[in-house]
Design a protein around this nucleic acid. Structure first.
Lengths: 204, 204
DNA sequence: GTCTATACACCGATAGAC
DNA sequence: GTCTATCGGTGTATAGAC
């Protein structure tokens, strides 16, 4: 009688190929920008012809979708490791969280565009790929709640001001620090608005 | 003896055609989104074939470039008319300026994407088209200076927080007011950070 | 000068042979 | 599962008609 092997080598190989395709796509995205990710370019990198990719992904947007999920999973893990548990001061906790997101965004433009900007015409993330983004946002919500900020507007306000800094930095001074330097001040004014106890210095 | 006519009908007709092409491009951008603006679609709207557009614009990006200039010229005019001269309070002046930009952005997504987001792959505005954007920013700088805010960081901070609100509003709640409602609070915390005298209420 | 016809190289996607 | 061939789309270049 034929028994099923306890390791599905077929599935493993398939998963490995998918991973190779996504790795190639990331490499191209970082080198040539997001629009440089064409099916022909990705296929060439993994030693295939373009149509063969359709055996592993339903469409080009499905590749973007998987990348979107990877990126947010990656950030969620970074946040899980990086958010301070119970730090010295509430303001330090906010600054740490903001800086974590800022640095993550600035360190990979293509990834940030995929995660946070609607730069790809037809692309809309699937619920499965959106899940880690929701998880990461929930982690931030928890952090704010631990500081006593339970108003939903507290979260919206925080994402708006930090996202605003990131967008300006990437759009108008890529590679520089013109808006990065303002991060401390922004967190400070946010903390004050939220009624958190004053830190050592409001003005940086 | 042949005298030159004091009206160059040829040039007028040419300018009129250019205007028609741009109008068609704006119409398509608003209806189908920015990526829907293809040369063939624009040409069809003005009763031409696609290659004929090259008699009036050097490339597709040149069309985007002219639209970029138009949009910023339009906003600069709105700012010139809408910025309060010497209003009741500094905070009211800031709120007015922020709301002017916010409403302008939210009222036309495609226009905002063209003006402020790098959503078109190869597009980079020319110096001529960028000029009105610089002018509009200078107008905001003057407004801040009139309020005593002469630190360059004051301008960067203001654009970051207002831009952050706009991006979140358009990306996560298009057509809604979830972030628009926070505009007063954001301006309030900005004004406080900048040391402006407190208005009637910090919390809206 | 203005427009058309034609062509090229690229894109994502599909059909079907092996 | 990967291939070749091909389709309809894109932006763009150019020759030539009017």
């Amino acid at each position: 009688m034929v028994v099923a092997p306890n390791r599905d080598r077929r599935a493993e190989r398939r998963e490995e190929t998918r991973r190779e395709i996504l790795d190639a796509a990331w490499l191209i995205a970082r080198q040539e920008g997001l629009p440089g990710v064409t099916l022909r370019a990705v296929a060439a990198r993994v030693g295939m012809r373009a149509p063969s990719l359709y055996s592993h992904f339903a469409s080009k947007n499905a590749i973007y979708d998987a990348m979107f999920g990877q990126a947010w999973t990656e950030f969620d893990a970074a946040a899980a490791a990086g958010y301070p548990g119970l730090p010295a001061s509430p303001r330090a906790a906010l600054t740490g969280a903001a800086k974590l997101f800022f640095d993550f965004a600035v360190s990979d433009l293509a990834r940030y565009q995929l995660m946070n900007q609607r730069t790809i015409p037809g692309f809309e993330p699937s619920p499965e790929s959106y899940a880690p983004a929701v998880r990461a946002l929930g982690r931030l919500r928890s952090l704010l709640a631990d500081l006593g900020l339970r108003d939903p507007a507290a979260l919206d306000l925080f994402t708006a001001v930090t996202g605003g800094l990131i967008d300006q930095q990437l759009a108008n001074d890529p590679g520089g620090t013109r808006w990065e330097r303002l991060l401390g001040r922004v967190v400070g004014m946010y903390a004050t608005e939220m009624g958190l106890p004053a830190g050592p210095e409001t003005r940086q």
